[in-house]
Amino acid sequence: MAKVTFTLNGESITVDEPLNMRFLDILRMKLGLTGSKEGCGEGECGACAVLIDGQLVNSCLLPLGSVEGRNVMTIEGYRKTKRYKILEDAFIEEGAVQCGICTPGMVMASESLLNQNPKPSEKEIRIALAGNLCRCTGYEMIFKAVKRAAKEGEGLW
């Protein structure tokens, strides 16, 4: 066990857990934040993706020891933001959600993209989402949702 301090959704937090715990488990088990999902546990699907210092990271491959001093945003924090509302609305309007298990991760990936590139082309969107597997939608409507969000949320990113 070791004390690790980091910023989580805007607030400083210290947890006392083994450094080799997966950050995903810290979030889901210890902190009760179950919005990040486990689809594979091996970095392949992106369902567990969170933002670290504003960029997308898979929390299932992140040991707690790597989080010290970092700034973490999960879907639970992100959903309170204006940008989230824009993305949420775009995902609904474009029908980008089916079973929904990939969706929180997709939203985090979309935020990470738009944060770095507010006006992405379709190709850039595809590349940005390539680490987030979706088995339901065939992605098409997700691409449209990200495009719509970029347009509707112009100036926010």
Partner: peptide
């Protein structure tokens, strides 16, 4: 004519309680 899916919001926001979340 399409309407907004009724369960999208809870899924997008991470609130929907899938089995492993319980």
């Amino acid at each position: 004519e399409s309407i907004r899916k009724v369960d999208s919001e809870e899924k997008i926001s991470g609130r929907a309680p899938y089995t492993s979340d319980i």
